[in-house]
Design a protein around this nucleic acid. Structure first.
Length: 479
DNA sequence: TGAAATGTTGGGGCG
DNA sequence: ACGCCCCAACATTTC
């Protein structure tokens, strides 16, 4: 096929934007006619537990915006509902393209799917090109001096920053070759309902979707960037960027975000950049240790800790009814909004594992189901960090005190009151451990602990001792 | 990207 | 004045 007639297909996945896009850029640059496609993959969607899924809705809205953006340029986004494994090869054949372009995905299950698609395409004489897009550095790009992958964050971060230069932050100039977009109109976007999903009722907590949503959030965050370091620890404060879900679905560009922070400088921007580096770090950990995707701990000695795994306690944690206000407020935030403040992810994870003595994998799964910004690498990394089973994890004897954390990070109880209205009348001393209120005081406030709000389901000091002995045994057995 | 237990120090009350 | 106790405040170690 001659260059002048060469056609290509860009397969969008977690990169739902039309600018600074590696695969789109490379396809446009080396082909004359570029088609764009997104597949609502039934191999993923059919396994989702709930037909009202915020992530599917977020993706759907973002896909709709991407389709509109391409239409404004005279092109279109082909959207299908089916198994991507077969849809992409058949679409490639229908369109008679010479190559399919996409961006790397680092999750083992997705890599297997992509390998299968590659095989099918190769057999049909169609090339498959994949690019780094969702991270700054991937796989083997940041290694120690002895060419080994880093297992500890701080030295990784130092090496990452040392390697960073303008080249890695450059946007892909999609505009330059935009005339190579295929001028077509395709079928309408399938409705959510036709794919078996129903709209969720996100109400006022709804995060704006799509490229425009990401842009609005980032513009707002840039103003707050200087305060990020101080503000990010407190769940009642508007400190975070709220961009995690947009990074997850690529409705913003990591290069754009990192470049802005890098150029801005200052303590706030540096701290935030560090969070972006954590993201690269965990992608890289998964690449070098794919066995963690099979439920294995990074540290082998803790792979089979004998957790009692009490189902009732697990339900109390899931439903925000443990009797520890900060834990419950955090879990209710997750359940109601699909997002949880990062500090609270650490605190609730520590509580599940080290106060309730439940396998961290149960919590990992629950977060995977509930978090709008769920990403396997970061979620697994975070859980193994909290459970002390991961690389660069906290030491196993480090256990958060749910009351102390509450007093430190929600001193006024503002966040707790937002999600636990039944405790709203408590003063800021009482609200962190309301079961300590004398009966008379409870009566005065009209709150009966144990009735209107649960008594603590466990005693922290007791559970802490149990956890220490559990880990101590496993630790000693391996020594 | 802790918390709890234990150790040390120093000021004040008191006999 | 002095020793003693108490305990807060801080430091260290232990988990």
């Amino acid at each position: 096929m001659s260059v002048s007639t060469q056609r290509a297909l860009v397969w969008f996945r977690r990169d739902l934007r039309d600018y600074d896009h590696a695969a789109l850029y490379h396809a446009l640059k080396s082909s004359q006619e570029v088609y764009c496609a997104f597949i609502f993959d039934t191999e993923i969607l059919d396994r989702l537990p709930d037909r009202a899924d915020r992530r599917v809705e977020f993706i759907w809205e973002s896909v709709r915006e991407l389709k509109q953006a391409l239409q404004q340029q005279g092109a279109d986004l082909i959207v299908r509902h089916g198994a991507a494994r077969t849809e992409i090869p058949s679409l490639a054949k229908e369109l008679n393209v010479a190559a399919v372009y996409t961006n790397h995905d680092y999750e083992p299950a997705t890599k297997r799917r992509d390998a299968s698609v590659t095989d099918t395409l190769t057999n049909a004489g169609i090339a498959f090109h994949s690019f780094k897009d969702q991270v700054i550095f991937e796989r083997d790009e940041v290694l120690t001096q002895t060419c080994k992958p880093y297992g500890v964050f701080t030295p990784y971060k130092n090496a990452w920053l040392k390697k960073l230069n303008d080249f890695y932050l450059q946007p892909y100039p999609v505009d330059r070759y935009v005339k190579h977009l295929a001028k077509v109109t395709t079928t309408a976007l399938p409705e959510l309902e036709s794919m078996g999903f129903v709209r969720t009722n996100l109400g006022s907590m709804k995060l704006p979707a799509g490229m425009s949503g990401a842009q609005r959030l980032f513009e707002d965050f840039i103003e707050r960037m200087p305060m990020y370091q101080a503000a990010r620890e407190f769940p009642a404060v508007k400190g975070p960027s709220y961009l995690s879900v947009h990074l997850r679905f690529g409705t913003t560009s990591i290069r754009h975000l990192a470049r802005t922070a890098w150029q801005m400088g200052g303590a706030g921007a540096e701290t935030w950049l560090s969070e972006l580096i954590w993201r690269d770090f965990y992608f890289q950990v998964l690449h070098h240790h794919p066995h963690i995707a099979d439920g294995h701990t990074f540290k082998a000695e803790f792979n089979k800790l004998p957790f009692p795994n009490d189902e009732t306690l697990f339900q109390a944690w899931c439903n925000g009814r443990t009797g520890y206000p900060l834990i419950d407020a955090a879990m209710r935030q997750l359940n109601q909004t699909g997002w949880m403040h990062n500090r609270l992810r650490m605190v609730t994870a520590s509580f599940l594992v080290k106060d309730l003595l439940i396998d961290w994998r149960w919590g990992e799964r629950y977060f995977a189901d509930k978090l709008l910004d769920f990403d396997f690498s970061a979620n697994n990394g975070g859980w193994q960090w909290a459970a002390s089973t991961g690389c660069d994890a906290q030491p196993w004897f480090r256990i958060f005190n749910p009351v102390t954390q509450s007093e430190k990070f929600d001193a006024e109880g503002k966040f707790i009151r937002k999600y636990i209205p039944e405790l709203a009348a408590c003063n800021q001393k009482e609200i962190h451990a309301p079961w300590l209120m004398p009966a008379l005081r409870q009566h005065e406030l009209g709150i009966a602990i144990g009735k209107d709000y649960p008594m603590p389901v466990v005693d922290h000091a007791t559970q802490r001792a149990k956890t220490l002995s559990l880990y101590k045994q496993a630790s000693a057995a391996s020594a």
